[in-house]
Structures are given as C-alpha cells and as structure tokens.
Computed example of a mutant assay.
Amino acid sequence: MSLTTDDTPATARPGPQLGLGGTRSSHRWASVPGNFDKLNCRALWPTDNDWGIPLLPRAEFVPARLVAYTDRHATATAGPGAAVHFFLDDYRFEVVWSKPERGLSRCRTVGAALTPDFSLYRDMPLVMQQWQVYRSRWCGAWLGHHGVTVVPTISWSTHDSYPFAFAGIPTGSVVAVSTVGVWRDPVARELFAAGYREMLDRLNPAVVLVHGKPPTEQVQAGTPVRCFPSRWDGGDR
C-alpha cells in the first residue's frame, strides 16, 4: 500500500508531510494499528539528495559533556551543556527509530543530542548502509522538529559509502564521530583515516566531536577537535 503519491522533486518537498501518531491510546490510532507505519513514512523531511536522506540544519552547539542514551540517571541529571550520545550497540537505542516519541522524551530532558550512530559495516550491502544513514538523519530531523538541539553523527565504511555517508549535512556544521574500536584493527584504522579526510574535504566542519581516543595528527588537518573519552577510556558509562 502506498502512503503517498507525491511526485514533487525531493529538493522541493516540505516536511514533515504528516505527523506521527503517538500511542495506541492516541486519537490518531482510532482506525489503524500501532504498527501501521514501521518505516515512519508519515513524517518525511526536506532533503537535498537523490536518496531522500533528510537535510539537517547546520549545528553550532559544542557540548561540554556527553551522556549515553542508556544511562537514565545521567540523562535525568545531565545539567546544562550536556548532550545525549548513541555510541552504543544498535539494539540499545533502536527504540529511537521504532518508537520515536518514546525515544524523544529522554533527549528532551537533556535538551541536546547527537544523532543515532546506526552501524555501517564494510561488508554490509550498500543499500543497508544507505538505510542506516537515512535512519540516523531522520531521527535527527525528528528530534530537532521537537525542540532538541541536534548535532549530526557521521559514519562511513569504505569509499563506496562516501556518496551517501555525508548526505544531509551542511558544510561548516559541528559534527560527531567515534573512534571506538578503530585502533585495534589496521584495516579499520586505514578506512577511518580515509573517511575522516573525506569528511573534512566535503563538509569542512566547524568542530569535530570525537567519542573515544583522538584521531591521529595526520587526519586532524587543522580542524578543531573536542574529545570525549569513551567508557573504555574511563569516560561515560
């Protein structure tokens, strides 16, 4: 069943086209079941690319502290200047996509959030990688639409992912990346360094927020970097 018959070019589409219903008790669910729209097609956001990956606004916020989405105490007591991060196993924050209103509440409590870091693996089919990027940007657009200050998280795999990995991010934005697990695998380290340089070339970010150990000097290339130790480095829990 088609949810929309809109033939308007992607770059001209307003968004969101439809609002998401809240819960089964919501009046919006009077005639449709709660799992009616697992793809979140009722909220389509402005885009500037052929994949329809949502376009996020330029981020200027540089958090003083990152708190894990799964840490309820930390998110409840974060205080000003903090932001929620999703550098976790994907299943721990899948709800932010599958039940976006439920995921929204914790981010609203903190007031700022990085976009979810849905994993991109180098042996994952490209169409699946595109979907992961789409979901990350969609969640960012959803959170921003509801008043949360959003900083885009950037992920990539091989050079084949570059065309869509940076889609939907304006130049000059604050962005976030994670280096967790990169340094243990020579191939992962090489791919990270190549993608990081590509990110700098394409996006010219104002600041790069790094979750984990800092990038090597060779890939910093003069762009300001703000590092936040991971839980393995004695940082957030």
Rank of each mutant, 00 (worst) to 15 (best):
N40R: 15
V175S: 00
A78D: 05
L56Y: 06
G222L: 02
D117E: 11
Y121F: 15
A112R: 08
Q132D: 01
R189V: 07
L39K: 15
W51P: 00
N49D: 10
L200N: 02
G195W: 03
A64Q: 14
G168Y: 10
N40H: 15
M1Q: 14
P33W: 03
E60Q: 07
G81F: 09
I169S: 03
G234S: 02
R137V: 09
D160N: 14
R65P: 00
H27Q: 11
R106M: 09
L20Q: 09
T153S: 15
D185L: 01
H159C: 05
T223C: 05
F166K: 11
Y196D: 03
S173C: 04
K38N: 04
T23G: 07
D185W: 02
M124Y: 06
V180Q: 10
S136C: 10
R58T: 12
G19L: 15
R106E: 14
I53Q: 06
T149W: 07
H73G: 00
L120H: 08
V96T: 15
Q130Y: 03
A167S: 15
V67S: 08
T47W: 01
L104M: 13
T158I: 14
S25C: 03
S25Q: 08
F93S: 00
Q17A: 05
E94S: 13
T153W: 05
H85L: 11
F36I: 12
V127Q: 08
P215L: 14
T158C: 10
A113P: 10
P224G: 03
P152N: 07
T8C: 02
G111H: 01
V67C: 10
T158V: 13
A12N: 00
D7G: 04
A59N: 06
T158S: 15
R42Q: 13
P46H: 02
C139F: 05
S98P: 05
V62A: 04
A30E: 12
Y196L: 05
D89P: 02
A194I: 03
P54W: 13
R231M: 06
S26M: 08
P205L: 01
R13W: 01
R189C: 14
V96H: 04
A193N: 09
G235D: 02
R108Q: 13
S26L: 06
R231A: 12
W232G: 00
D201H: 12
R72I: 09
A68M: 06
F87E: 00
G181R: 04
F228R: 01
R72C: 01
A10C: 01
R106L: 10
H211E: 03
G181V: 06
E60H: 11
D123M: 07
W51D: 10
D37K: 10
D90T: 15
V32E: 11
A76Y: 03
P215R: 10
W97Q: 11
L120D: 04
G52Y: 11
L200G: 00
K99W: 04
R108M: 08
V175Y: 01
T5D: 14
A193V: 04
G222I: 02
L56I: 06
Y91K: 13
H85D: 10
A112G: 11
A83P: 06
T5S: 13
V110K: 07
N40D: 12
F118E: 00
Q220M: 14
A59G: 04
D201N: 14
D201W: 04
G52A: 09
G140V: 05
M124T: 12
V182Y: 10
G22I: 08
S26Q: 05
E198P: 00
D6L: 02
T158Y: 13
G21I: 06
L18M: 12
T47C: 13
